[in-house]
Amino acid sequence: MSASSKNARLNRKFDQIRRMEESGELQKKKSGNRALRKLLNNRLAIIGGVIFLLILLACIAAPLLTSYSPKAVDMKSILKAPSSAHLFGTDKIGRDVFARVLYGGRMSIAIGFGSALGCAAIGVLLGCYSAYRGGWFDSLMVRISEVFMSIPQLILVMMLVAILGQSAKNIVIIFVICGWGSCFRMARSQVLSIREEEYVQSLKVFGLNPFVICYKHILPNALSPIIVNVTLSTAMFILEEAALSFLGLGVPMEIPTWGNILNAAQDMYTLQNNWWMWLPTGIVVSLFVMSINFMGDGIRDTTDPTQQG
């Protein structure tokens, strides 16, 4: 990394320290609290990280944790309450709910993370270049992203689902089409501010390839908000997948996903009588989304000094 970027970072660090001093002086009686709060915030992030990893690993290691297949129908044991044989019980056609939650988690997480990553990849790639290059390319890209962002997301999703049809792959494509715009804008504004920094100017003078400057020297300095964005949108896409399933527009019902499992337990009878079909799944989804949110917050707090506490 270049010396000037180190310098910039050092400067930022100093700024941060000074600000901490100032606020510390201002609020003498709360100075202890502030440190506590920082710690706690990190603690929330840590708790979030632990939950996240637990659920993620459990889903990845699904075949080790359960011997049932999420699709194996067993008409002889339908709607069984949780027991040692079936940890989360069985559903209306005798499938093991625990296995479905684990395997469904794989799919839901893959959809959420894949979509977030796809959005980030496209958004960052275009955003960095667009901001660095400027000119007509930049204004064209901004226009295009505005078009996509002006169509309310759910509406675009509904139309695309009707066109492309329902499949896990299509859902990811649709989420990326609908979601790249905000990532683009964020990456672009980050790069715009970094572009004017001295080290970039000096690299230009050296005559480096603009792509190299853009992606090798500028991008890494804009990375932390992008990482935050990827984590937070993973959570958002997982929730969105569930909402689409509820509207009957999500992943085809035969593929277990968290949204589909919850959706299958929609009727009042199941809600009132077969709690194991929805409660564990609902808790796992909410916990997972929450853990991602805490992690995202934590990362933001530690990397972005302008965000306080």
Binding site: L239, W278, S286
Partner: peptide, 14 residues
Amino acid sequence: MIGVSIPQFFFGVC
């Protein structure tokens, strides 16, 4: 955080 993490339809049905 809990509020934003629960699927909306699920919240409604409950």
